[in-house]
Design a protein around this nucleic acid. Structure first.
Length: 471
RNA sequence: GGCGACGUAGCCAAGUGGUAAGGCAGAGGUCUGCAAAACCUCCAUCACGGGUUCGAAUCCCGUCGUCGCCUCCA
């Protein structure tokens, strides 16, 4: 059974078949680097990281290209407002993005092309479109003539006529048609500019992706991804540019993730965006929570659906993470064969199949996570039954492996630093003596005060263990 | 107005024709000096109204509601 995935263009689930056996060419639209990235950007990157990791798990060799739009109006405006160089501004946020990718345990893309480093390819592509009659120069600008593309609208399922009747498209006297979009924008004085056959200027937003894909991956790719807010006009325009220039199918599967929704205190849902002032930056989030928490949130909700974000959801996923971590606690048991062991290994194998079936079904993260929880239960039950040794650690290794396919790190939180360990052990020993002497009030005081400092003590028949928790 | 996604327990959600996964929260229990953790048990007829079918959360029609896009946006 091949992987089934939802293709925005067809609006249906389709079996995944690559252009070349076991090779996946995947392009994902990256951010426009003019401000700090927020967790909505993080969500999108996580969605495609999970998809990529699963494709790799299924044996595909994935070439993953992600762009940076490092020159555009917003960057220029922001740089002007801060009285600094737009290129340097973009550079700063690109570095930030790479840091976020590492912090969120996202696999780095195979290549990170930028608009400014793809300039000659962009100019070549625009020239081709002009030669082929799909584009025209006008007063230092170049526009794509939408009505030369008879398929225009096939991704977003809208017709040129319907859009023309919409009142929201402002006419521009330089355009032949209000729907035509810019491939090249002539520079105004003081703006960054690159030489071109049409004068100094910079590329329009959409053309860079077409040029980068052509350069990095070729005329035809397997997967193109991004947020669903990019379907129109951005991705629609990419198709128009690329297919008119190459006369080949541009993208086989379009994958779009839903938007992150903020729930305000009053219960209203709204898209996370700068203009609404409801931003949670990736840095803000990670200062409070492990990266796994955001990843679990992304996994819990279908990637195409809006993801609701509020404090309650975050807290819930914090606890989910704790439960997943519970499976990684060691066992003092010694049973390494018999019914309990067979039941454990059987449950692990069954959960792996459940995991694969879920992920094969359009990357169903909730189902995949459920399989992970099945493993947790099996492992904890086995530990309680005294299973230990190699079969137990083997089961934990399988669990870790599957969690890793989803990109979950399951790291212990060492907030107090490694050096706190011996002192905590000392207090645990002291408390053990107090308990032995039935000095329970003092023993409980030690435990409570450690809890207040974020150290959680857990007693068992084998002694007391500790771990970092919420302070 | 147009296009698209969606509406399953208090919450997040699986489910793609055969009588509702999983997680969080909650209740009871085992263990414990107590607590925590773990484990066991309990907790829904699927927005509403029609229709197709032996049989529908699952297919069709309609209604209501939510979200996104239609202008820059992951």
């Amino acid at each position: 059974m091949p992987i089934q995935l939802y293709n925005t263009q067809s609006g249906t689930l389709e079996p995944f078949e690559t252009l070349e056996p076991n090779q996946v060419k995947m392009y994902v639209c990256g951010p426009t680097v003019y401000d700090k990235a927020h967790i909505g950007h993080g969500m999108s990157a996580l969605v495609f990281d999970i998809i990529r990791r699963y494709l790799q798990y299924r044996g595909y060799d994935v070439t993953h290209v992600q762009n940076f739009t490092d020159v555009d109006d917003k960057i220029i405006n922001r740089a002007n407002a801060e009285n600094r160089d737009p290129i340097a501004l973009a550079e700063e946020y690109i570095n930030d993005w790479h840091r976020h990718v590492a912090d969120l345990n996202i696999l780095p893309a195979t290549a990170y092309p930028r608009a400014t480093t793809t300039m000659s390819q962009i100019i070549d592509l625009i020239s081709t479109l002009i030669e082929r009659g799909n584009a025209y120069a006008a007063d230092g600008d170049v526009y794509f003539r939408v009505r030369t593309d008879e398929d225009y609208g096939k991704l977003s399922h809208r017709s040129i006529d319907a859009m023309r009747s919409g009142a929201r498209i402002a006419p521009d006297e330089r355009k032949d048609d209000p729907l035509d979009f810019a491939l090249w924008k002539g520079a105004k004085p003081g703006e960054p500019a690159w030489d071109s056959p049409w004068g100094g200027g910079r590329p329009g937003w959409h053309i860079e992706c077409s040029a980068m894909i052509l350069q990095e991956l070729g005329p035809s790719i397997d997967i193109h991804g991004g947020g669903n807010d990019l379907i129109f006009p951005h991705h629609e325009n990419e198709i128009a540019q690329s297919e008119c220039a190459t006369e080949q199918t541009f993208v086989r599967y379009w994958i779009h993730n839903g938007m992150l929704q903020m729930r305000s205190a009053s219960g209203e849902l709204e898209k996370m965006s700068k203009s609404l002032g409801n931003l949670v930056t990736i840095d803000n989030f990670l200062a409070e929570h492990p990266a796994d928490v955001l990843r679990l949130m992304v996994l819990a909700s279908p990637y195409r659906a809006p993801l609701m974000y509020d404090a309650g959801v975050v807290a819930e996923n914090e606890r989910k993470l704790e439960r997943l971590m519970s499976a990684l606690r060691p066992s003092n048991g010694t049973t390494s064969d018999g019914a309990a062991v067979e039941s454990l290994t059987g449950a692990i194998a069954e959960a792996r199949q459940k995991f694969e079936a879920a992920m094969d079904n359009d990357f169903n993260g909730a189902g995949a996570t459920a399989a992970l929880f099945d493993m947790v239960k099996a492992i904890n039950t086995a530990r309680d039954a005294g299973v230990g040794g190699q079969p137990f650690t083997e089961a934990q290794a399988r669990f870790r492996e599957i969690a890793g396919v989803l990109g979950l790190e399951l790291k212990e939180q060492a907030r107090g630093g490694e050096e706190a360990g011996p002192f905590i052990e000392l207090l645990i020993k002291l408390r053990a003596d107090l308990r032995k002497a039935k000095q329970y009030a003092l023993a409980d005081q030690v435990r409570n005060e450690l809890t207040a400092l974020g150290v959680i003590l857990e007693d068992s028949a084998q002694g007391t263990t500790w771990r970092w928790g919420k302070a």
